[in-house]
């Protein structure tokens, strides 16, 4: 490939930097996220239908409610859960998009 007139960020570099940013957001910054109920939960509570929510089918998951079972430190527990989530979403999403993409030599 010839030298482009101005250097642009390669896709690989973009993805690596992007994933690193996401890992910091989910693994570290998430400890400072607001723990107040979100809009829907708040509305459900104030109008009195929050109680109709049933226990979650995945409540027994080791990462239920963005914590890591067996890790006592709240920041570590939440950060680990965030990193696990990043990894799982990455594997599924990158894999799915890779399978679905048109190859450059496809005739469509």
């Amino acid at each position: 490939m010839s030298a482009a007139p101005h250097r642009r960020v390669s896709t690989t570099r973009l993805v690596v930097v992007g994933l690193a940013v996401c890992a910091v957001l989910a693994g570290v910054v998430s400890a400072w996220a607001s723990s107040n109920p979100d809009g829907l939960e708040y509305v459900a509570e104030s109008l009195g239908f929050l109680d109709s929510a049933r226990d979650h089918g995945s409540a027994g998951s080791p990462f239920a409610d963005y914590g890591t079972a067996g890790v006592d430190d709240a920041r570590l527990s939440g950060g680990l859960a965030g990193l696990v989530g990043i990894a799982v979403v990455a594997v599924v999403a990158f894999g799915l998009m890779h399978l679905l993409r048109r190859r450059s030599n496809d005739d469509d």
């Binding site: 896709t11 690989t12 992007g18 994933l19 996401c22 979403v89 990455a90 599924v92 999403a93």
Partner: peptide, 12 residues
């Protein structure tokens, strides 16, 4: 690859 990254960003 950008689509994969977008999914990860939305999760984070």
């Amino acid at each position: 690859p950008l689509a994969g990254l977008v999914a990860v960003f939305v999760f984070a």
